[in-house]
Design a protein around this nucleic acid. Structure first.
Length: 486
RNA sequence: GGCGGCAUAGCCAAGUGGUAAGGCAGCGGUCUGCAAAACCGCCAUUCUCCGGUUCAAAUCCGGAUGCCGCCUCCA
């Protein structure tokens, strides 16, 4: 497949270093708050990448870390009046809750920074010994940025540009404002670990260098994260790792685009942070997941209610087609008739194009288009009285079912039985509109009575009442069926 | 100020040289007591604007305008 490499700034053919094995590292969360929609996008994007690579037959070793010691966690601990490690534990647990609901697979290895202090100290010592780092009088250790010649290569900046923005904070003893911390000496009351340079804690960038080397070795194939991590986090990781191990660090750097909220940057100051759990109060987790995949992973994505509800309608359309497909397949009496082979070719074409889209830099938005084309074909068969019972269609329909299952497994949607999803969706829509199921069912029962009595005027007025509530009733041979509409 | 990205129908969105996927909404039809779903048909001679390259450009180049991100913690 082709994948966009942030380092080269172009799409490249993806070839793993070792035959059939893909080694991949994605920066996980700093556990100091609930996860927001941006975390969800990053998690979903790399989850789909892992799933797709596995579908292609690669053995993927996937590492996603937890930053469980950091300034932000310490600050949060003060605010919540909790021990810092309790804060980390609490938000890691919340992370799992949210990610499980979004159907994000667990990484193969999920290392925590605090469990790798030893490795980080070793790495820091190595950099000091090599002259890439230095210790200050108060026990901080800094990386000597100017000594690392290709610094800025990943983020596309040069030292002079960076110089302008860099500052030395009061009390810091940097040789150069560009230098960044590998080890921070502990202030009174802060969490700390013993080290050759005194008690302190590791700098943020260090953990990913230490843990990726430990679990994957260098160089490894894919390093992922949000676009904002390119600078300084990934630039610094790269500098540390390449300086210490004298080899290239990562072969393909993959970064996902940002999520905006109502066309604005999501930020604490604007107060527009949208957490995953907030969204899942009002929308089905698969809907959120599907929404996140309707735009290419590198483009900015605007989160707004209209777009999510559009995704909801789209996913519902696919599920309804799957339900219909299964209904046709449950038929036992197939008729021996000839069918037009062009239809069969059209179906195959959609499948091929679906996979070709993913081959091209994981274009899920495009791939989903072919899913909808497949849905239209299924519905076309379903509405044709002859086709839906035609013997030659049977194998074709089974194949479509298998295709949709496989596609769903890659995208991490269509994971539920259609009837289950549609009921769950209905519940969450009713909740959103604050309508009780019983209320709807009572009105429908009343309308059925009226219809039996051929009192169509009453039946129609009851229908109008339901429509006013946002409920649409459809009359089927098996009785009335209702849906919530926006 | 420096670096980078993006501008496609009412809305969302794919499309990196060969003549505009898909979804939502809308309109007409089939079906229906009515309606909904579904299906069929319609819905961008045109891709922010101005130049250029080419037989051919939404796609490449130059310029303009607008929006956004990064440069400080951030997925």
């Amino acid at each position: 497949m082709k994948i966009y490499n942030s380092l080269k700034r172009e799409k490249e053919e993806f070839v793993p270093l070792r035959d059939n094995e893909v080694r991949m590292y994605v920066c996980g969360i700093t556990a100091y708050d609930y996860c927001h929609i941006g975390h969800a996008r990053s998690a979903v994007v790399f989850d789909v990448l892992v799933r797709y690579l596995r579908d292609k037959g690669y053995k993927v070793i996937f590492v996603r870390n937890f930053t469980d010691i950091d300034d932000k966690i310490i600050n949060r601990a003060h605010k919540e009046n909790l021990p810092w490690d309790e804060v980390a534990r609490k938000y890691i647990e919340a992370f799992y809750e949210d990610m499980d609901r979004l159907n994000i697979l667990r990484a193969d290895i999920e290392p925590k920074a605090t469990e790798h202090i030893e490795e980080m100290i070793e790495l820091t010592q190595k950099l000091i010994d090599m002259g890439f780092a230095y210790v200050t009088s108060r026990g901080d250790v800094y990386f000597r940025v100017r000594k690392f010649k290709t610094y800025g290569e990943l983020s596309g900046r040069n030292i002079e540009e960076l110089q302008a923005g860099a500052r030395i904070e009061p009390g810091e003893e940097k040789e150069d404002p560009l230098d960044f911390a590998l080890w921070k000496s502990a202030k009174p009351g802060e969490p700390k670990w013993p080290s050759p340079w005194g008690e302190g804690r590791p700098g943020w960038h260090l953990e990913c260098s230490a843990m990726s080397e430990k679990y994957l070795g260098l160089p490894f194939d894919i390093h992922g994260g949000g676009q904002d991590l390119i600078f300084p986090h990934h630039e610094n990781e790269k500098a540390q790792s390449e300086a210490a191990y004298s080899t290239s660090f990562v072969r393909y750097w993959v970064h996902n685009g940002f999520v905006q909220v109502n066309s604005e940057k999501m930020s604490k100051s604007l107060g527009n942070f949208v957490t995953i759990r907030d969204i899942l109060n009002n929308y089905h987790p698969e809907v959120l997941r599907f929404f996140l995949l309707t735009k290419h992973y590198r483009s900015p994505l605007d989160y707004n209610l209209e777009s999510v509800e559009e995704a909801e309608k789209g996913l519902k359309r696919i599920y309804q087609a799957v339900e219909e497909l299964e209904a046709i397949l449950s038929n036992k009496k197939w008729k021996k008739v000839k069918v037009d082979s062009s239809l069969i070719e059209e179906i195959k074409e959609q499948q091929d194009k679906f996979f070709l889209s993913l081959e091209d830099d994981l274009n899920t938005a495009k791939a989903i288009g072919y899913l909808f084309n497949t849905v239209r074909i299924v519905n076309r068969i379903a509405t044709d009285k002859n086709l839906r019972k035609a013997e030659p269609m049977k194998d074709v329909l089974v194949e479509i079912r298998e295709f949709l299952t496989r596609a769903g497994k890659i995208l991490g949607v269509l994971n539920l039985a259609p009837a289950v999803f549609l009921e769950e969706l209905k519940d969450i829509q009713l909740k959103r509109k604050n309508i009780a199921r019983e209320e709807v069912e009572a009105l429908i029962a009343k309308r059925q009575d009226a219809r039996k009595n051929k009192d169509f005027a009453l039946a129609d007025s009851l229908r109008e009442q339901l429509v006013a509530l946002g409920i649409e009733v459809k009359d089927t041979p098996a009785g009335p069926v209702w849906e919530v509409v926006s």
